[in-house]
Design a protein around this nucleic acid. Structure first.
Length: 613
DNA sequence: GAGTTTGAAACT
DNA sequence: CAGTTTCAAACTC
């Protein structure tokens, strides 16, 4: 007898570490794996439900989540791309998705020969007996934990969608006859759902057969601990909902397909069915389900995934890596660079996927929509801006620090008149520091003269000490800043050792603060820009038909577009119009490089004649 | 709607 | 692990 789920005050928490799965390591492992697959939890790793909604009769596995909560998690306003079977029962316009239609009484069939022939160990004891003829209760749709999991990876219209005639459609109505809906053959069972409104016969995948269902679940999990895991993994778990909302189903089939005859272009293929390209996980033959395949692209009526370029082949990653090495010596810049790096290297829009066609088919990475706005050169400019801010802050603060030193020195002189002992003590402290400063400077000069220490303003392809990486302009700028500050400090004759150290610490703090503040402001404005861009694109997309995409995505200019983008990702000219990856350039033609600086309320340092070190 | 094809799941 | 069988969805007519 399994213990009930742990309850948290005021809510129900499904705690996978609880005793619910004690002794069921495979289930617990699966649950943990599911949680892990979700990535960093947007909510704590337990799903909270209002306590009032708890139904004690709900099954333990998959955990059932109340429909109201479920409905909140799955907005219903999204369109459903593929055609769907309409429910047999018409829904009234006022009916909510969780208000399930009244169910018919299903006849209970006697076991067929096939069922008798089945190995008994795969049929639960409860199933060996003829299930009593039960009328299926009129229950709200029992959304399950797995549903919620899936909802984060699939469009919310996966289960339901609202058509124009306000008829709710459901896509997965099984029609199982022999499996009693307790095998993974059954889509409902596989997805952790009860069969409600299905056309199945002799169904045991419901509340009334919960014991049998649990047994079947255990059997399935025993056979494959990942049996109930989503078959399509998302590489961008953190934003999968937004991706789904955009219609961009991303990822790859975790297990892969083994299709032989359908070229993976039919729904027999699980990858195709899941709207993902075949991946290295597949063992299919004659596969045409890869992003550059014209046949695949042409099947846009049924294809809703948008495969993406291999960033390695496009050079995107390489550029980013080089650029962000520029910031690796500075934590704040590093943070900024990393954030933008994620934005740049991990995403490709659906239009990119349609346009960039000459890449390895099995490498899949994804890009957020902001990738259309942010380009490498933008990041370079941002880094330069942050460097400028850092440098200006350093100079200003150093200057103020020196003034402070002068004041302190004057005060010390006054103090020295009062106390010769203190003066002597100060002199004792000052002298070694001065010696150290001059020693450091002279030793540096010696090292530079001997060629063992490179000049701070080195060639861009100089090898950085230790890691042998070429220095990017940003790194050099940072190093210049550090060197400048050090040399300025060491050159300052009036600086006392203690105040120099304090000043340096303060300067670094202030520099970091200013850099982060500027970066925060930049991100805020970028977010605004992104929202505006999204709005513009949504408006533009209504005017820009899919045919336009096909025209620009399937003709011979695609490779040129891809090549051009590799060389100059900012702007592509085609037929007098500006296109980028098949999409009308809104971001860069209207925002562009200078636009980012406008957003920041500053002029680009590159356009301002500023020395970039 | 019946029959066929297909590939995943189940089984050996 | 590979081959075979079972199954239900997808597809065709």
């Amino acid at each position: 007898m399994e213990k009930p789920l742990q309850l948290c005050p005021g809510s129900v928490k499904i705690d996978f570490a609880s005793a619910s799965y004690a002794g069921k390591a495979d289930i617990a492992a699966t649950a943990a794996a599911l949680l892990h697959a979700l990535g960093p939890p947007r909510t704590p790793p337990c799903y909270q439900l209002p306590l009032a909604k708890v139904n004690s009769s709900l099954p333990l596995w998959p955990p059932v989540i109340c429909p109201s909560t479920f409905a909140q998690k799955r907005p219903m306003s999204l369109p459903s791309p593929p055609p769907a079977k309409k429910l047999q029962v018409q829904q009234s316009s006022s009916m909510l998705p969780q208000d399930f239609p009244k169910l018919e009484v299903l006849p209970v069939e006697k076991p067929t020969k096939l069922q008798v022939r089945r190995s008994p160990q795969h049929v639960s004891p409860a199933l060996k007996q003829d299930s009593p003829k039960m009328e299926r209760p009129l229950l709200p749709r029992p959304a399950t934990f797995i549903d919620v999991m899936l909802s984060s990876q699939k469009p919310s219209s996966e289960m339901w969608s609202e058509t124009k005639d306000v008829t709710l459609t459901r896509k997965t109505n099984c029609s199982c006859k022999y499996s009693k809906c307790l095998k993974l053959y059954c889509e409902c069972f596989e997805k952790g759902r009860y069969c409600i409104g299905c056309n199945c016969t002799n169904c045991c995948n419901n509340v009334n057969h919960e014991n049998a269902r649990q047994d079947a679940i255990n059997v399935a999990l025993e056979r494959n601990p990942a049996a109930f895991m989503p078959k399509v993994s998302n590489s961008t778990a953190h934003n999968c909902e937004s991706k789904a909302a955009e219609g961009d189903i991303v990822g790859k089939h975790t297990k892969g397909c083994k299709c032989k005859r359908t070229e993976c272009l039919k729904k027999y293929c699980e990858c195709f069915k899941a709207s993902v390209f075949c991946s290295e996980n597949c063992r299919c033959t004659g596969c045409k389900n890869y992003k550059s395949n014209a046949d695949r692209i042409s099947q846009k009526n049924t294809v809703h995934a948008h495969h993406v370029q291999n960033p390695a082949s496009s050079g995107m990653v390489g550029q980013s890596v080089i650029i962000f090495h520029a910031a690796e010596n500075d934590s704040s810049l590093s943070l900024a660079a990393s954030a933008l790096s994620c934005s740049l290297t991990s995403s490709v829009t659906r239009e990119d996927a349609k346009s960039l066609v000459k890449y390895a088919p099995h490498e899949v990475t994804y890009r957020p929509s902001l990738a259309d706005i942010i380009q490498i050169e933008d990041v370079n400019e941002l880094c330069n801006l942050l460097i400028l801010v850092s440098r200006q802050a350093g100079a200003t603060l150093l200057e103020s620090g020196m003034k402070e030193n002068t004041k302190r020195k004057k005060l010390n002189r006054v103090d020295s008149c009062l106390s010769s002992t203190n003066h002597d003590r100060e002199a004792i402290q000052k002298e070694p520091a001065k010696q150290m400063c001059s020693l450091e400077k002279s030793s540096n000069e010696v090292l530079i003269a001997e060629g063992r220490l490179e000049l701070p303003r080195a060639d861009p392809f100089d090898i950085q000490k230790g890691n042998k990486r070429p220095l990017s302009p940003g790194t050099q700028a940072l190093m210049c800043d550090e060197q400048d500050a050090i040399f300025q400090d060491s050159k300052a004759p009036d600086a006392t050792p203690s105040t120099t150290e304090e000043n340096l610490v303060d300067i670094f703090k202030e520099q970091e603060k200013l850099v982060l503040t500027n970066f925060r402001d930049y991100l805020c404005k970028l977010a605004t820009c992104g929202k505006l861009q999204e709005l513009k694109l949504s408006l533009a997309s209504t005017n820009c038909s899919e045919q336009a995409f096909a025209d620009h995505g399937n003709n011979s200019s695609i490779t040129r577009v891809a090549k051009d983008q590799t060389n100059n990702p900012s702007v592509l000219q085609q037929g007098g119009k500006h296109y980028r990856s098949g999409r009308l350039i809104l971001a860069r033609t209207k925002i562009g490089n200078a636009g980012i600086w406008k957003l920041m309320g500053q002029k680009s340092p590159l356009h301002n004649g500023v020395d970039k070190c």
